[in-house]
């Protein structure tokens, strides 16, 4: 569903992503992890067609994002970190707007169901400007799910969400992946995404350090226990040390 081949992204003199290649099949949930500045957000934005790649190819649901941007984008949804809503639109109007952009017919029932699931039904007529950080995040999630995307990209989606919100979000991600969507989730909360993701891509300084399932990555690292946590794997991969810094 997502094919990234030899992705390079440069900002002026700085190379943010270097020769990155990976693929996410339908039904898979990829955890994108790495220290700050590793190139996670740049990678997600490139897949979403926000940043044009400097070189390399990106395919979403069979469409090249550079050649057929509209077709590719119509199959994906992205939730940025700290999403900003249209402050003068109500929650419901956001959904109305998304329904028009993605040409979702008869969206009302699905929208109400999503609002209820994310405990936003009583805020449907509130202006986005009046919402808390967590609620804005929930609105962005609901907007992303409304058109049932085949590719779901989430950049630090748990920030600001309460425990109930995180649980609902994870349920929604599982539902989408069971329905055949490819999901990429970037997060620093390793313990939380560990059980959700089927594969992991550990990035460092713009490159792929490890890619595969937790077991595959664990086996590739000598000296690591079989039941090592994602956190331990992460520190081993990025710093060559253990979680406690030793």
């Amino acid at each position: 569903m997502i094919e990234v081949t030899g992705l390079c992204k440069a900002y002026d003199d700085r190379l943010a992503v270097r020769d990155l290649s990976f693929a996410v099949a339908a039904g898979e949930v990829l955890g994108l992890v790495g220290p700050n500045g590793a190139g996670k957000t740049t990678t997600l934005r490139a897949i979403a067609g926000i940043h044009p790649p400097t070189s390399g190819s990106l395919r979403v649901a069979g469409h090249d994002i550079a050649e057929e941007p509209v077709e590719a984008k119509s199959r994906l949804a992205m939730i940025p970190d700290d999403p900003q809503l249209f402050s003068s639109l109500t929650v419901w109007e956001h959904l109305e707007f998304i329904a028009q952009v993605y040409q979702v017919k008869d969206f009302a029932a699905a929208a109400e169901e999503l609002l209820e699931r994310f405990e936003l039904l009583d805020r449907r007529d509130s202006l986005a400007d009046a919402l808390s950080r967590g609620m804005r995040q929930k609105v962005a999630v609901v907007c992303a799910l409304l058109h049932k995307p085949d590719v779901l990209l989430l950049d630090e989606p748990m920030t600001g969400l309460d425990p109930r919100g995180i649980r609902t979000l994870f349920e929604a991600i599982r539902t989408r992946s069971v329905a055949g969507a490819a999901v990429v989730i970037s997060s620093h909360l390793l313990g939380q995404i560990e059980q959700l993701c089927t594969k992991f891509l550990i990035m460092g300084e713009g490159t792929s350090l490890f890619f595969g399932s937790r077991d595959e990555i664990g086996h590739a690292m000598p000296g690591l226990r079989d039941d090592a946590s994602l956190e331990e794997i992460f520190f081993q991969a990025t710093e060559g040390g253990s979680a406690d810094g030793s």
């Binding site: 067609g49 509209v70 984008k73 992205m78 952009v101």
Partner: peptide, 8 residues
């Protein structure tokens, strides 16, 4: 956030 990743 909303328009750049949208099919526009």
């Amino acid at each position: 956030d909303f328009l750049f990743p949208a099919p526009i």
